[in-house]
Amino acid sequence: MNTNDKLLIGGHEFSSRFILGSGKYSLSLIEAAVKYAGAELITLAVRRAQTKEHENILDYIPEGVTLLPNTSGARNADEAVRIARLARELGCGDFVKVEIMRDTKYLLPDNAETVRATEILSKEGFIVMPYMYPDLNTARDLVNAGAASVMPLASPIGSNKGLATKDFIQILIDEIDLPIIVDAGIGRPSQACEAMEMGAAAVMCNTALATAGDLPVMADAFRQAVEAGRKAYLSGLGRVLMRGGAPSDTLTGFLRD
């Protein structure tokens, strides 16, 4: 097995394959979440600034963790581009997770606008990680638009419903020559593990941790699940029989001889 198994995104190398969201939980838990999840990439959002009496999330993120600002709140490509430029002006690197939603009930991404924003931002030197509905044609368009990875949803954001789009994510993993990072909807470590067994390059979670009973312990569980799934994928999963069974030891023993 490859012991130097790294995740490469836009020329940057990561040992961890778990991307951590930072929304909907206390800033005081961020350090523990990063530590137990083993996360090297953490997402953030851009909003109207809070005054200096308020705590700032940047003071809670351990050194060495790469920031991945998202464009949440954007309803079209132009708004996403505007947010991405502001995020870069905040001075924390060139990564951006493009996230464009027109629909507020299911929060499903707008694939066409996402392709458009990806094209603009990658030309401006951003490392673009677009969140998308798992569609092969869109994924190909994202590759051509200069995306650094493709982030298909497993199920609606914040739902914890797991790999509802499993078969379509598998198509992206099989056909797209960029890291496929399963984002949104992963609710349990077993689902993260399954995504990794399928060959996903990484998994991103936020709500699964934010709504867990004990966040640091759940972060640890996700780290282990992602590592287990990755190892299983690299080792090559055992085959599945469509019918019948096959003994795991020889049946022609002394009793029948």
Binding site: T43, V46, R47, L90, M204
Partner: peptide, 26 residues
């Protein structure tokens, strides 16, 4: 407005300014 220009960029009537920062998000 780049930080280097904060000192010499003057606002006038009718201008619209946004001041943003990072918060937690997924």
């Amino acid at each position: 407005v780049p930080k280097a220009k904060y000192n010499d960029t003057v606002v006038k009537d009718g201008d619209s300014v946004e001041i943003v920062g990072f918060v937690g998000g997924g």
